[in-house]
Amino acid sequence: MTPPLLSVDKLEVVYNRAITAIQGISLSVQTGQIVAILGTNGAGKSTTLRAISGFLGIDDARVTEGAVTFKGQRIENRPPNEVTRLGIVLVPEREKVFPNLTVAENLAAPFAPSMSNAERREREDLIYHFFPRLADLRTRTGGLLSGGERQMLAVASGLVCKPELLLIDELSLGLAPVVVEDLMQRLLQIRKELGITIVIVEQSAAVALEIADYGYVLENGRVVLDGDRERLTSHGDIQEFYLGQSSGDRRNYRDVKQYRRSRRWYG
């Protein structure tokens, strides 16, 4: 097997030197894959992505143990701008566009490694090819965009940085299902045409598993389950707790406890 594009090995992140947010998470991402990280609130999904893309001093967070390796290079605890230049770009969950810059300025601001003006224009055309709607909104201020448009702009401005690996935090958050569906199709198109590897973090397993090749389920800062799409969609716990399909008969509390007990085995 070829070495993975990105591998996270027994990662541990501590906030404020006191609160352990994730403990011992390991994942690996192959080139060209779409990988989904699933889990409920506070499971450590966002922290995992932030740890990969790098913390700023103001976050007061650190990777205290474990390793993040990208193309054979250790990148944990590097500042975000360096990680971005290496080819990993994060689309954050909140505050993902610059609200007082226009769409065009939002797309101009990102730093792209050594790009000529011609290349830059080409890149711009490419972005408007993926997101034609943004071309009409060029002079609109980022803060005035709708949720869906904002998400498009966030992904688009990430693409300006020429990523090899795109990390997307909560693509579907607060968006109508039809908009999410549209965005997911764009991601598939981006992967197909640019060969970009994508990691998506989602609360909604139904959405994520639709396009993902592989998935990890996080709970309380640990990986409790992983597998390819077929395995996860057919897995009983996933069906029940993330996809919301019950197998017909009513469940009672004991079954939930049963699940809680059983999931320890995955960790």
């Binding site: 893309s53 790098g54 700023l56 103001i58 976050d59 500042p79 975000p80 701008n81 971005t84 230049r85 770009v89 994060l90 954050p92 505050e95 993902k96 566009v97 610059f98 609200p99 007082n100 810059l101 601001a109 990102p110 730093f111 792209a112 490694p113 401005s157 990430g158 300006v160 940085c161």
Partner: peptide, 13 residues
Amino acid sequence: QNPLLAAQRGINL
């Protein structure tokens, strides 16, 4: 406007 996002977009703060 947003130093963190700026850094994530490759801008050297």
